[in-house]
Amino acid sequence: MITVSTDGSCLRNPGGAIGWAWANHDGTSASGGETSGTNQIAELMAVLEAVRAHPGDEPLRIEADSQYAIKCSSEWVHGWRRRGWRTAGGGPVQNLALVQAIDRAIAERSGPVTFTWVRGHRGDRFNERADELAGIAARAARDGLLPRPTTVADAATRPDGAAQPAARGLVVDTLF
C-alpha cells in the first residue's frame, strides 16, 4: 500500500496565496501553489495532485487533516453526482471543478483509494512535512517565485483532453 499525507495552506483566507503538498511515506513529495484561493481549494488540490502522482493498481491511502477534503473526495461526492452535482439542499457544490477532477482521478486509477483523517499539528512526521511544504509553496506563490504553466491550455487539459484545474509550480522533492 502507498501511503501519502496531504495538506493545504492559505495565507489569508479567503483570497490569499495558497499552497498544497503531498508527502509520500517513502520520502518523495510534491508541492505547488497559486496567488489566490481558499484553504479548502488548497486542501482539495493536495488530494488531487496526490492521486494523480500515484497511478497504478497498488492501493493508495491518503492521510489528511482536512475532514472537508476527505468528505468531498470520499463521501459527499456520491450524493452530489446522483443529484446532478447539486447539494442536498439543491444549491451548487462549492469547488465543483476540483471535486469533479478528484472524482475522475480516483475513478481512472486502477487501484483503490482510501482516506484516513489525522489530527493536524500533533507531531505526525508526514503530516508535518506536508504542512511545511504547503506553507513554503503558499509563500512562494505570494512572492511570485513559482513558475507558471507553459500555456493555459497545457495546464488546463489532461492528455486525454479532459479539463483539469491548473496546478502551478509543481516541485518534486524527497524527504530523506
Rank of each mutant, 00 (worst) to 15 (best):
M1K: 11
T3A: 14
V4C: 14
D7K: 13
S9C: 15
C10D: 14
C10R: 13
L11P: 15
R12H: 15
R12A: 14
R12E: 14
N13E: 05
P14C: 07
G15S: 11
A17I: 04
G19S: 04
A21T: 09
D26F: 08
G27Q: 07
T28C: 00
S29N: 06
A30Q: 12
G32A: 07
G32M: 08
E34H: 07
S36E: 14
G37I: 04
T38S: 01
M45E: 08
A46Q: 09
L48S: 03
E49A: 00
E49N: 01
V51N: 03
H54K: 06
H54P: 04
P55C: 14
G56W: 10
P59R: 04
R61G: 01
R61Q: 12
I62Q: 09
S66I: 03
Y68I: 09
I70Y: 00
I70D: 00
I70F: 01
K71G: 00
C72R: 09
C72H: 01
S73H: 11
E75D: 10
V77T: 07
H78Q: 12
G79S: 06
G79A: 13
R82L: 14
R83H: 02
R83A: 13
W85F: 03
T87P: 01
A88K: 14
G89Y: 06
Q94Y: 01
A101D: 10
A101Q: 05
I102T: 10
D103A: 12
R104M: 05
R104D: 10
E108W: 11
E108M: 11
R109S: 08
R109W: 07
S110E: 12
S110F: 05
G111K: 04
P112D: 15
P112H: 14
V113T: 15
T114E: 10
T116H: 13
H121L: 04
G123N: 07
G123Q: 07
D124G: 12
F126V: 02
N127A: 03
E128Q: 07
R129K: 12
R129P: 00
R129H: 08
A134E: 09
G135L: 09
R139A: 06
R139H: 05
D143G: 04
D143M: 01
G144F: 10
L146E: 06
R148Y: 01
T150H: 03
T150D: 09
V152H: 13
V152Q: 11
A153K: 10
D160K: 13
G161P: 05
G161D: 05
A162I: 01
P165L: 05
R168C: 06
G169F: 06
G169K: 06
G169I: 01
V171F: 03
V172K: 11
D173H: 05
T174W: 12
